[in-house]
Amino acid sequence: MKNMISRLDRAELALYDFPVIARLVITEKVAFITPYSDRRHGADSPCVMVASGHPLYELADRLFVKFQQAGRVL
């Protein structure tokens, strides 16, 4: 798999030592935040949409940066 990825100039493969506590989808305009529970499947979790500039958007952006910093690129 690493050989396949290395041929793509825009792909990066990393390992993360961080619990899966949420799903974040962030664009320039909105962030979708789906917090995961220990007792519920992700598909059954609520999803919150917040606009850029909202405090929760800023939180999602900060969390994403922290998740990325926890990764180790292969």
Results as ranks from 00 to 15, higher is better:
residue 10 R to C: 07
residue 47 C to M: 12
residue 22 A to Q: 12
residue 37 S to T: 06
residue 54 H to V: 00
residue 8 L to G: 12
residue 69 Q to G: 14
residue 15 L to M: 06
residue 13 L to C: 11
residue 67 F to R: 07
residue 8 L to K: 03
residue 3 N to L: 08
residue 21 I to E: 14
residue 49 M to D: 14
residue 18 F to V: 10
residue 26 I to H: 04
residue 71 G to I: 10
residue 47 C to Q: 11
residue 66 K to S: 15
residue 41 H to M: 05
residue 69 Q to Y: 09
residue 2 K to G: 11
residue 35 P to K: 03
residue 67 F to P: 04
residue 35 P to F: 03
residue 54 H to S: 11
residue 66 K to D: 14
residue 51 A to L: 14
residue 68 Q to M: 09
residue 42 G to V: 02
residue 69 Q to E: 15
residue 30 V to W: 00
residue 32 F to Y: 03
residue 24 L to N: 05
residue 71 G to T: 14
residue 53 G to S: 04
residue 55 P to N: 05
residue 64 F to I: 02
residue 43 A to P: 01
residue 70 A to L: 11
residue 5 I to C: 07
residue 63 L to R: 13
residue 13 L to W: 10
residue 9 D to Y: 10
residue 19 P to V: 12
residue 7 R to W: 00
residue 57 Y to S: 09
residue 26 I to F: 02
residue 2 K to I: 07
residue 37 S to F: 00
residue 11 A to E: 09
residue 26 I to C: 04
residue 60 A to K: 02
residue 30 V to Y: 05
residue 60 A to W: 02
residue 17 D to W: 00
residue 68 Q to S: 06
residue 5 I to Q: 08
residue 44 D to T: 00
residue 16 Y to Q: 10
residue 12 E to C: 06
residue 51 A to V: 08
residue 34 T to W: 02
residue 62 R to A: 13
residue 50 V to T: 08
residue 54 H to I: 02
residue 60 A to Q: 05
residue 30 V to G: 01
residue 63 L to K: 13
residue 50 V to I: 03
residue 32 F to R: 00
residue 17 D to K: 08
residue 47 C to E: 13
residue 69 Q to M: 12
residue 46 P to A: 14
residue 64 F to M: 11
residue 15 L to N: 09
residue 45 S to M: 14
residue 25 V to G: 02
residue 46 P to N: 14
residue 72 R to L: 13
residue 47 C to I: 11
residue 43 A to H: 04
residue 18 F to W: 07
residue 33 I to F: 10
residue 7 R to Q: 01
residue 12 E to G: 02
residue 67 F to S: 12
residue 3 N to T: 06
residue 62 R to I: 04
residue 4 M to Y: 06
residue 6 S to D: 14
residue 59 L to Y: 07
residue 13 L to S: 10
residue 27 T to Q: 07
residue 74 L to D: 08
residue 9 D to P: 15
residue 61 D to F: 06
residue 39 R to I: 00
residue 18 F to Q: 15
residue 45 S to D: 14
